[in-house]
Design a protein around this nucleic acid. Structure first.
Lengths: 169, 169
DNA sequence: TATTGTTATACTCTATAACTATA
DNA sequence: TATAGTTATAGAGTATAACAATA
């Protein structure tokens, strides 16, 4: 992949330019920087609800299909089962979900949203939308669509929901 | 900012859609996800050199203007002075930079690259370029420029070099 | 009295592996 | 013997604050 005409153009542009105190014109750098800022902000956005972004994501998954086991969700989110415990503990303390026994296998805990869980999840979704709008204030709607399309063209395996990063999910 | 025509369009599109196991069409989500993946990969890319991304960034700053004090660079990178110590320690152990006494103020240590430091920084820059090219394999050069322009249109204060995030710098 | 660099400490987050109860 | 969930523990990474030398 190195040495193609396209590569040499990138090399000419320079990812680490002579002016070092400014952000380089590098997709990798901008993504890292913007991605971190965006998740930090989203963290603050959810704080009033007492939720962490990764808990919001978990609510989203449960809401999509209630009754799945902790392990099923853990593997879906690519977190170790031991970590899932604290996650579910917290959401249960908040009264947003409940562990129900599985009649067929007494080892598993099926996760279900409570009524309050559905309400809070709805609120969080609204906050996420507002967050998105603030983030994209400098873009027209066309540009926003364009940006999303371009981001999707980057290696798709990077975007997969599994292995969601610590700051977000 | 909520309630404008643009906002309602975003709301219609839906950031948290009914299909929950797929990545939503949300700039915030994609940035978080891609940013995290990109920095994780960059971490691996630099490993053969024994460098952490944030050390690479530090080298970049020193290379831009040698002789600055640790505190000056610490405030530039928005890391606490205490953290800068370990950073500089490691780079000094690797023989990439040296602390020189400041003749005018015996408290300060002026940071300079060694010859080896310049060499390794050059290698790291090359690796960073290859990383960028791999990342953008799915984009034409025009699309890559377009993407960078769009990213720059997002709130610029998010991109500033200060407060570089843990995974990157 | 303030500042540079340093050290000590404590806190958060995380994964690994041991453990239990079921299967 | 294997699996779901849990607990214990240890490691990495971080910030805060105390400290010594110098200004």
């Amino acid at each position: 992949m190195a040495g193609t005409p396209k590569d040499s153009r990138v090399l000419e542009k320079g990812v680490a330019p002579a002016a070092p105190d400014r952000a380089p014109r590098s997709v990798g750098f901008l993504l890292s920087q913007l991605g971190f800022s965006a998740s930090q902000r989203f963290l603050e956005v959810l704080k009033p609800l007492g939720l962490h972004p990764r808990e919001f994501l978990l609510l989203r998954f449960i809401s999509a299909a209630e009754g799945r086991s902790q392990q099923a969700l853990a593997s879906l989110l690519a977190v170790p089962p031991s970590r899932m415990v604290a996650l579910v503990d917290h959401l249960e303390e908040l009264g947003l979900l409940e562990r129900r026994p599985d009649p067929h296998d007494r080892r598993v805990r099926a996760l279900h949203l409570t009524e309050r869980g559905r309400t809070v999840y709805g609120r969080a979704t609204k906050l996420a939308l507002e967050h998105e709008q603030r983030l994209c204030l400098g873009l027209s709607e066309t540009e926003r669509e364009q940006l999303i399309d371009l981001l999707h063209k980057l290696q798709p395996e990077l975007i997969e929901l599994r292995g969601v990063h610590p700051g977000l999910g």
